[in-house]
Amino acid sequence: MKLSLKVWRQKDAKSKGAMVDYSLEGVEGDMSFLEMLDVLNEQLIDNGEEPVVFDHDCREGICGSCSLQINGEPHGPDRLVTTCQLHMRKFNDGDTIVIEPFRAKSFPVLKDLIVDRSAFDRIQQAGGYISVNTSGNTVDANATPIDKHAADEAMDAATCIGCGACVAACKNASAMLFTSAKVSQYALLPQGQVEATQRVQSMVRQMDLEGFGNCTNTGACEIECPKGISLENIARMNREYFSANLKG
């Protein structure tokens, strides 16, 4: 198929960017979206132009590197997939595709389609862990039985890949879904209880410091999340946060 692409090009963090038009032929339905961009880049390199840079690594939907806003939606029109798992069969011959970086003040563009998502790392560093010595001298793994339902829910929250689609989709660029997924994972497990108060307060404080917007419960994050992280996590974080503050 033949496609018209409108791609955000920006030389570096300081430069101003702009949309640039490209046309691309020979795209096949079996290609992933990133493989389509590979073809574009080969074409650009052949023409002596600089290829479009974008973050990507595992290309199997789990590392969370890829991060494109495609036709106005993070990771494109398909549901429950990352851009690397979005296949070109979801598009039609002759389509125009608009490709932009994830937009948020807290995700500054570094070049073209690459953004800096280290704000997410800093939120995790603020408290997204259980302070247990890594010596291995802990109790036996089966010493504390955990309700299967709680363990499964913790797992569902823990599947977040930190791609930032929630922020990109949210009209407020809020990072609540991301932050709440981590808070929830630990809140649901007995091991996470000891530091629960401190954790949710620190992580929320860091999230606010990073300049993300406020949640208005539109639910866009949940719909666009490639891992289907539920809004229930946000509600849980709210509960955790208020009970933490009531405890003082």
């Binding site: 862990y129 259980i130 247990v132 890594t134 291995g136 802990t138 109790v139 036996d140 793994a141 504390t144 913790a154 994972q185 630990y186 497990l189 091991q191 996470g192």
Partner: peptide
Amino acid sequence: IDQCVAQG
């Protein structure tokens, strides 16, 4: 396994 469970 013990370590990882302790880490959540």
